[in-house]
Design a protein around this nucleic acid. Structure first.
Length: 534
RNA sequence: CGGGGAGUGGCGCAGCCUGGUAGCGCAUCUGUUUUGGGAACAGAGGGUCGCAGGUUCGAAUCCUGUCUCCCCGACCA
């Protein structure tokens, strides 16, 4: 068996005469239920989103995958700017000394940093090149794993007075963390993200910013990615190195595992102290700033796949689809194609002239040579929300054949569930269909999540049974706990580790605790999610 | 980093044990016939077998090193 099951290899799975549902000839070889990890990789390759690069842990993001990321960037950036945060850009290289200033931060990242030590290569005499020993850097440069320290440097220069506060910056950038084990989009050595960094006069303001960013991520995830999430505070052991509080949004994947999809950290004055970010207050006294950082990464693309993908490939929420509608003329490579192309072009213009989800509809008239049916399956695997095929007969009837990606199959026949509206009706209904798909994906994901959250387990035995070997994709458990700290928390973490479980977050807006702690037996003070995690 | 597996035309694989002309399927290209649904037939192009050394008359095959990928573990805002 080869390392990666690439999609093109085996044309299609064979299906032996079974009626109805089971006769459906899915567009992927691997089903989610058979091997979720293999399915995930097949979606990425079949939807042409990304591929391995030959550099450890680094991927090439192909146009369809990158197009989805660009849409995420656009929509989140709009939200960031609407909140009054300004974009800026800081260097990729960070002086090593910056990292020695905040002790916990160093400990957290030291083991996974890429370091630049030379600035020149020299021939090794054997036809190769090696770093020139003469060109060794006086002080090594770290490739940023995150930019708190270098942005902190800038903040310390830019902030003098209480009038300079709050200072709220964001940058879109790549970062590098030398992870032991990588998975496309979910954990790559290099990844793309945005990181917001803000400085405030008071703890109160900084905490408000922390919560603002968290709420922004929740809204982005649910409204744009159609990804239902649970916002809450991370337990102490899951905190960002150097943070006072770490908050996250957590999403449930179709295999029941949790994915941290965005984080917001209240850093207290820890980084301000390390980078000397201080200001003169209204009374003329020097005060340290309270800083905050928040981030969302290309990991979100992985979350999208594992939430909305199905056995036919990806389903991209319309808000994020680079093309929301794809028109496929049934070409014959003959002169008679001309009127059909003109008919489709008119359809394209009708659709492009409309708005959906607050933007002009993004429609592609795919006129590449090739059979419409073959191209259709490509677009199904890529997850374009609406596919419209048009043949000569449609044209004669003034109609089109419309296929919704979220309702692909006719269960009766086991064939694609084409509708045949008139061209005008099809064009006019696109905005409604797109909005319906966007909402439908969110509802479907939320219902699936709620069906896989259990809240009535109050013993470790019960927890172990819930996540037992026979339970394939169990889900999450919300338990009550006494919020132990320090060594007592470590003990809990060890207990959970034995079951391959982690503490996710302490959800907001839930009823107060009213029972005993599942771990310690003490009176519980809050509720926390326990799950397997990516 | 520990254990296991794998790198051979674009993709999936066989060949390796037992060294001797680099093969198969899919994809691609050309032609013909088809085509309202994931076409058929015929022909053709494309690989210094991950990389670097070594053994040998001769290495995809044996030996050493190294890089990359996959799975499990450890690690991981």
């Amino acid at each position: 068996m080869s390392p990666i099951r690439r999609h093109a290899s085996v044309p299609f799975p064979l299906n032996f005469g079974k009626p109805a549902m089971s006769a459906i000839r899915h567009a992927l070889n691997t089903k989610r239920e058979d091997d979720f990890a293999a399915w995930y990789q097949e979606v990425i390759s079949a939807a042409d989103m990304a591929e391995e690069s030959g550099v450890r842990g680094c991927m090439v993001i192909k146009p369809w995958g990158y197009g989805i990321w660009e849409r995420m960037q656009r929509l989140l950036d709009d939200r960031i700017k609407a909140a009054g945060v300004q974009n800026a850009y800081f260097p990729l290289f960070i002086p090593l000394a910056n990292f020695t200033r905040e002790a916990e931060h160093v400990d957290g990242f030291a083991k996974e940093m890429a370091v630049v030590t030379h600035h020149r290569l020299i021939a090794d005499g054997k036809g190769g090149l090696v770093p020139d020993p003469e060109a060794k850097l006086e002080e090594p440069l770290v490739v940023r794993p995150t930019s708190e320290t270098i942005i902190g440097d800038a903040m310390s220069r830019w902030i003098q007075s209480w009038r300079d506060l709050p200072l709220r910056l964001n940058q879109w950038a790549n970062v590098v963390r030398w992870e032991m084990r990588t998975r496309m989009f979910l954990r790559t050595s290099e990844f793309l993200w945005q990181e917001g960094h803000t400085a405030h006069a008071t703890e109160e303001e900084a905490k408000a910013e922390t919560m603002r960013a968290l709420e922004m991520y929740r809204a982005f995830a649910e409204e744009d990615v159609a990804l239902p999430v649970i916002a809450g505070e991370k337990p102490e052991n899951e905190r960002f190195p150097g943070a006072v509080e770490t908050w996250s949004i957590e999403a449930m994947m179709q295999d029941g595992k949790a994915l941290q999809a965005g984080t917001s950290h209240y850093l207290g004055t820890n980084f301000a102290q390390a980078a000397d970010i201080h200001y003169q207050n209204r009374e003329g006294r020097e005060e340290l700033c309270h800083t905050v950082s928040w981030g969302m990464s290309t990991r979100m693309v992985g979350g999208l796949i594992m939430t909305h993908g199905d056995d036919d490939g990806l389903r991209v929420p319309p808000a994020l689809a680079p093309f929301q509608v794809v028109i496929l003329p049934m070409l014959r490579d003959k002169p008679e194609d001309a009127p059909l192309l003109a008919y489709c072009e008119e359809l394209r213009a009708m659709i492009a002239g409309q708005g959906a989800l607050g933007e002009p509809v993004r429609v592609l008239h795919d006129t590449r040579p090739g059979k419409a049916a073959a191209k259709r399956w490509d677009w199904v695997r890529k997850g374009a929300p609406v596919i419209i095929e048009v043949g000569g007969r449609d044209m004669e009837n003034g109609a089109v054949s419309l296929l919704r990606r979220d309702a692909l199959w006719d269960a009766e026949t086991g064939k694609p569930a084409f509708q045949s509206p008139s061209r005008e009706v099809a064009a006019q209904s696109v905005p409604t269909i797109l909005a319906d798909i966007q909402n439908g994906l969110l509802v479907e994901a939320r219902e699936r999540r709620e069906a896989h959250i259990v809240r009535d387990i109050d013993t470790m035995e019960g927890l172990a049974a819930f996540f037992g070997e026979d339970r394939k994709y169990p889900g999450w458990v919300e338990v009550q706990w006494s919020k132990p700290t320090g060594a007592a928390l470590e003990k809990v973490v060890e207990q959970l580790k034995a079951l391959k479980l982690t503490l996710r977050n302490v959800p907001m807006h839930v009823p107060p605790a009213d029972g005993t702690c599942i771990f310690t037996g003490d009176p519980a003070v809050e509720r926390v999610f326990v799950a397997r995690a990516y």
